[in-house]
Amino acid sequence: MDITNIEDEVYDFDNIFFQKVSSVVEEGLDFIENNHLIEPKENYVMLIDYLGTVINYFHNLDRSFMDSTFKKLQSDVNNLNGLYKKQKDILQNVEEIFKKNFKKQSNVIRVYTQEILEYKSADNLSNEEKIELKILLDYYKELDAVCFETFKSIFKEDCKYLLDSLLVVLNSKTYYLHEMFWHKAADSEAVQRLFRIQKIDGDISSKNYITHKLDVMLPYSKEYQYFKDCLRIYK
């Protein structure tokens, strides 16, 4: 079976299916490259949940906390994170996408489906036609399996590439969000007061804040483990 046509169809499908995420990735990578931004090797994406909570908390203490750049960046990170999670889900549901999306628009599959339908809708098939239909159904089964394997291989590779690139963009922007946030926190009188009242040791930093949280938290809870993992980023 010649799979060139199927491969071409999958590439065309992917171009449309991933159009949006692809343009976000391209734009994000260009932004990093053009501005020589840092691409950390530490996993800052892991901090997103913690950052969201602490940003809200400090914002409630000090309303002057967020400037327009910070708001833009926070919204950017949230959107990228949503897109990243969606892309991860897509990678887990390849078979469903094949059945629901790809098969409907594949010409290769459509030709055979149509032919089968024509046979099936006809009244009184002759014995010869019944044999032809059987051959066709067997071939369709084989074609479906080949199509799926071809689709899975190309689609997964494209999806994984975009997922990895998206992660690079998301991680870099989360790093900048984290840094901008803690620089602002260090300058905020309300946050300085909070650190004094809660007797948090050392300067105003994420590391000291998390260390303090761990000190007052119930050990071995899920949240405790999460904060312990977050702490690994700070050297």
């Binding site: 976000v24 932004f31 327009s68 750049t69």
Partner: peptide
């Protein structure tokens, strides 16, 4: 979505 975020020169200076 993310493609709508338009960073100004001032924003980039902060980065």
């Amino acid at each position: 979505m993310s493609e709508n975020i338009d960073y100004s020169v001032e924003d980039i200076e902060k980065f």
